[in-house]
Each structure stands twice: as structure tokens, then as C-alpha cells.
């Protein structure tokens, strides 16, 4: 579904990604594992079109999206749930969710999607008319995920969904991600909580200093000596 072929990307003169290649297949859950600063977020931002690679190609369902603008990529059905929630603070939760369904492919099914999302996130229903900035960190993360779901994406990307959340909330977030995965969605996830993520994923890539150094099934990675030492601390 998604094919990345040897991309270099970075900010200004600083190159962060060096020849990264990876793929995500239909209904697969793929994770990118790596230390802080390895380039995980940069990879997701490049796929989403917020950053343009200097070399390499990105294909989505066979179409070359390398040079496409971010909003056109959303139209194609790729949605990124960004690191740090990034809600619209002075909008209500309902308005935030409606913005999620801004893309043409989702606009017509707005009401229907809303019902479906409310089932997944019963807690949000009670908060629909509150301003997003008045929610707790965990609630905000739930709204961010719900907003991403509102776009009815073909590929859903998560960037550090458990960042800065208390352990109990992290468990809830992973429960929700588990439900989304169980519904057959195609997911690409980046997360510092390596253990939980590998448990939920089908396959994984290990990113170090901007390059993929290892790729295997999630199960194999959990047993890999290098991964265990570098990311699980054992």
C-alpha cells in the first residue's frame, strides 16, 4: 500500500534521514523503533508531506506522492496523528472532530463516522462541547486519535501516542489502538514504548541515525539481542 524507496530528508542543511526504505501493506500494523532523534518523527512527517525528501520516492497505492502537498496527501487517505496531540485549543471537541472530517472523502459521511467514533471513545461524548484546551492530557490524546479516525483514512499513522502520559492513561491509549487495529485498519506507528508497540504490531523497522538497520516481524524483533539491549534495556 505504502512504499518508501530510499528517501533522504531533513531540515534546512541538516539531513536526518539517509536512504530510508520501508513498506506498509494493506491491513498491516507496522512500527518504527528507534532512539530519540533517530528520525522516526521525520519519517512520518515526510510521508505526510510536511517535509519534502531530497532524494527517493514515496508511493501510495502505486501513485507517486513524493512531491504532493500535505493537504492533497490527506485527500488520498493518509492521516497522521501528530506527536503532542496538536488539537485546535480554542475550538470545542466537536469542532475538532469536524475538522478531522474536513477531507472530501470523509465530509459526506461525517455523521455516520461520528457515531462510530463515539462508540470507540465513549468518554469523549460527554466532552463534546468543551474547549479542547480544557481537557486533560489523556483526554486530549483520545480526541487527537478520534479526530484522526474522523478522516476515515486508508492509512493511519501515530506519532508517539503515549508521550507524556501517565502509565494508566498509556494503557488506555493502547487499548484504543488495539481496537482500531482489530477493526482491520492499516497502521504505521512510532512509539517510544517499544515493548507495548511491538506486542501490538505485525512488523517492525529499527531506525538508527536516520537509517533502517533492521527489519523483521515484531515477534522476532522482541527476541532480537540488539533490540533487547538498545531499546528494552536488557
Amino acid at each position: 500500500m505504502l512504499n518508501i524507496e530510499g528517501i533522504d530528508a531533513g531540515y534546512g542543511a541538516t539531513t536526518i534521514l539517509n536512504g530510508v526504505s520501508l513498506e506498509v501493506n494493506q491491513s498491516e500494523v507496522v512500527t518504527i523503533v528507534g532512539a530519540n532523534g533517530a528520525g522516526k518523527t521525520t519519517t512520518l512527517r515526510t510521508i505526510a508531506g510536511l517535509l519534502k525528501p531530497t532524494t527517493g520516492r514515496i508511493l501510495f497505492e502505486g501513485e507517486d506522492i513524493t512531491k504532493m502537498s500535505a493537504h492533497d496527501i490527506v485527500e488520498l487517505g493518509i492521516t497522521l496523528i501528530p506527536e503532542g496531540r496538536q488539537l485546535f485549543p480554542d475550538m470545542t471537541v466537536r469542532e475538532n472532530l469536524l475538522m478531522g472530517a474536513y477531507r472530501r472523502g470523509a465530509r459526506d459521511h461525517q455523521a455516520e463516522t461520528m457515531d462510530h467514533v463515539m462508540e470507540l471513545f465513549p468518554r469523549i461524548r460527554e466532552r463534546l462541547d468543551q474547549h479542547a484546551s480544557s481537557l486533560s492530557g489523556g483526554e486530549q490524546q483520545m480526541v487527537a486519535i478520534a479526530r484522526g479516525m474522523m478522516a476515515r483514512p486508508k492509512l493511519l499513522m501515530f506519532d508517539e501516542p503515549s508521550l507524556g502520559l501517565a502509565p494508566i492513561i498509556v494503557a488506555q491509549v493502547f487499548e484504543v489502538i488495539g481496537k482500531i487495529v482489530a477493526s482491520g485498519a492499516t497502521v504505521l506507528i512510532v512509539e517510544q514504548n517499544v515493548f507495548n508497540t511491538l506486542k501490538a504490531a505485525d512488523r517492525g523497522y529499527v531506525l538508527e541515525n536516520g537509517s533502517i538497520v533492521l527489519s523483521d516481524t515484531a515477534e522476532a524483533l522482541l527476541k532480537d539481542d540488539h533490540v533487547r539491549q538498545a531499546y528494552l534495556g536488557i
Binding site: P167, V170, A171, N193, F195
Partner: peptide, 8 residues
């Protein structure tokens, strides 16, 4: 637990 979560 802090680093890897309860399960681990």
C-alpha cells in the same frame, strides 16, 4: 515499569 510499561 516506567520505561517499558506494566506488561513488561
Amino acid at each position: 515499569e516506567a520505561y517499558l510499561g506494566k506488561d513488561f
